[in-house]
Simulated assay, not measured.
Amino acid sequence: MKQISYFYSAENESEINLEIWKMFMNQSEDERKIHLDFTGIVFDIQLGEVGKVDLPERVQMLIDKNGMKALPILVVNGAVYN
């Protein structure tokens, strides 16, 4: 399973980008099955608005070091990308 977390700042995030992430999150069971059959990957996506959710330590460290310009930050199976 792919665990995907996307951390963002509401002030700097585009509405379109958030809608795309929400579309992935809200896929029906049929759509998820088609994706699994085609790719062999099951995924779980979580969106996290900074300031409203608890942040993983590595994400918090990036924000502490670089400020809000570090966002957005993507975490996939524990690997952090920004």
Rank of each mutant, 00 (worst) to 15 (best):
S28K: 04
Y8V: 01
V76D: 03
F43P: 00
E13V: 09
G40Y: 05
Q27Y: 09
E57G: 03
M68W: 02
L74H: 13
A70W: 04
I45L: 15
Q46R: 15
V80T: 06
S5E: 11
Q60D: 10
M68T: 10
N82V: 00
F24C: 11
K65D: 11
M61H: 07
E29L: 11
K33C: 07
I73S: 07
R58Y: 01
V76F: 02
Q3M: 11
T39F: 05
Y8I: 02
M25E: 08
Y81Q: 10
K22A: 11
F38G: 13
A79D: 13
L71Y: 03
S28W: 04
D54V: 10
E13K: 13
Y81V: 03
I20N: 12
V53A: 03
W21Q: 10
W21T: 04
F7C: 03
T39N: 11
D64W: 00
L62F: 05
F24M: 15
Y6V: 08
L55T: 02
A70K: 02
A10L: 14
L47F: 02
I73Y: 08
E11R: 09
V42S: 15
L62I: 03
S28F: 00
E29C: 07
F7D: 06
M68K: 15
N82I: 00
I73G: 03
A70Q: 01
Q3I: 12
